[in-house]
Nucleic acid binder design. Structure first.
Lengths: 208, 208
DNA sequence: GTCTATACAGCGATAGAC
DNA sequence: GTCTATCGCTGTATAGAC
């Protein structure tokens, strides 16, 4: 069971009355997502996506009129999937440290798929993005920070985590470190590099 | 005195026999660098640079035949400037902790100029870059890690720094964290956000 | 919902005059 | 060293037939 957000494999489509599978919009998002996570949002074109799934550019414009629409849809699905993973961690993990391990696992899954975090990639391209897409990036980051701060607070209250200062600050530290580690590890697909950083991070939060 | 690498302001040009100033190649790099650090290497064009400094695209091609040449020149100058800053820190800083403070200061300067680290930006775009540019990114990262590992080792030997594990691993942790913090702080020019992360990093290396 | 065909702007790059 | 002019390609996007 992988909690990888927005993986192209094994996606469960909307369940219609006949139990039918994913339609064209979903397949477009699958391909566009992979390309955005590897080449950046400005690094792929409608033609790239269209040719890969065997339709024309014009057909893509029917589903996503402009590239900004595609980008927003991309981030919204990514965010949805990510939030579902967080809720799953909330429901199944055994305590705050375990939740953090599950959180780190999400990043590791992205890296194992030879991708960069979609949000981190868009963060780098932020200045070139339409305002609507920027807003979804901001939202994703804020959601992550809120969840992390909540878990950190919970863990410190229970004595299972230890750290100095404000939990919101620590949430930002965790997020920055993981995104940075992912960014640099992604260059050469160096999973070990990522794990070194992640492990240090988790250990440093252990109570003495 | 700012140790900001490759700042466009206050650059000292090659000193000719008449004491003349920067030529066109240098001005091209200044503008291209700023655009690359804010919009990404794929986020600006020859036309953007040319119009800003008041020449034509054709003139730019005379100095940098292809965009890959421009990118390599960009990174080489950036690396040079950065290394000079590191050597300056080596020569003037008082002990390893002070060197790390100077190192963090370099990142802070970039952020204060409303830029992303050039290397971090190219790291995000890595998959779309010509091999020659990739090599300069790799080189920059390796140089940074080597310098950090050396400082960390020196500090631990002198008892002024304390950390577990291999100094090369810790160097990667520092680099990842700072690049990630810069990436996310750069979004909204949030200097405070960056300082929160950087401060935590430095404090966590203090001997008990 | 998908197609063919096309419009139009922008890109990197080159030739040749000055 | 810089210019004008232009090429070929790719980008997003649209019109209209099926």
């Amino acid at each position: 069971m992988s909690a990888l957000p927005a993986s192209s494999s094994g996606r469960v489509g909307r369940v219609g009355r006949v139990g039918r599978v994913d339609g064209t919009p979903s397949r477009i998002l699958d391909v566009a997502e992979r390309l955005a996570q590897t080449l950046g949002f400005n690094g792929f074109s409608y033609a790239d996506v269209a040719s890969e799934i065997g339709i024309t550019k014009a057909a893509m414009h029917y589903h996503y009129p402009g590239k900004a629409d595609l980008g927003v849809a991309l981030m919204e699905r990514y965010q949805s999937s990510f939030c579902a993973s967080l809720q799953h961690a909330d429901a199944t993990a055994d305590g705050a440290p375990d939740k953090l391990v599950a959180y780190v696992r999400l990043y590791k899954d992205v890296l194992e798929n030879r991708r960069m975090c979609l949000c981190g990639m868009l963060a780098a391209e932020y200045q070139t993005l339409p305002e609507r897409i920027r807003a979804t990036v901001d939202d994703f980051l804020a959601t992550n920070e809120r969840w992390l701060a909540k878990v950190l607070e919970e863990g410190r209250g229970a004595g299972s985590l230890a750290f100095r200062g404000d939990s919101n600050d620590m949430a930002r530290i965790l997020l920055s470190t993981l995104e940075g580690a992912l960014l640099l590890s992604h260059l050469h697909g160096d999973l070990e590099r990522f794990e070194t950083v992640a492990e240090y991070l988790l250990v440093s939060l252990r109570p003495a």
